[in-house]
Design a protein around this nucleic acid. Structure first.
Lengths: 71, 71
DNA sequence: CTCTTATGTTCGGTTTATATAACATAATGT
DNA sequence: ACATTATGTTATATAAACCGAACATAAGAG
């Protein structure tokens, strides 16, 4: 399962969803969907988001197990 | 423009396109398209590829300018 | 020479990412 | 009270990712 820190970092920099969308050339709805974890953006968009949020892709997105067996 | 080192790292570990595809749950054609740079995989697939190739997403994929002005 | 394996490539399909538009709500400012 | 702004959410549409199958080529093994 894909997780991300977009909402957290966006808030930290005081960007609105629209602000961030403009910086990375997508609509605010796309940002909203990503924050909700409803889909897995392209690596191109992910790289742009990481740049806009002054981090790297590995810190912004990661995979977590979604079964009961882990840990 | 999106660039990547998938082919280089896959060769380094001696994987075939099929091997790598199985590890990350896509077909060999998908691996071939990514190596050719013909599309931008999802961040989920990118994270799996980075793991399979024992690197991180930032080292595996990056954006390059495609205009003449870049130094 | 034949068999197998890796790769390149194309085509027709399904699924998912993304756009655009609309409507709702809550918060803020005048 | 009204206007504006940020966000949540949904619906419909298009573009792009990805699959499965097919066919071709090149290289290595027997």
């Amino acid at each position: 399962m894909l997780k991300n820190r977009v909402k957290e970092l966006r808030a930290r920099y005081g960007f609105t969803q629209s602000d961030l969308g403009k910086q990375v050339d997508v609509t605010r709805q796309t940002i909203a969907f990503i924050e909700k974890g409803e889909f897995s953006p392209s690596i191109t968009l992910s790289l742009k988001l990481a740049k806009a949020l002054q981090t790297n892709v590995n810190d912004l997105f990661w995979l977590e197990e979604d079964d009961d067996h882990e840990k």
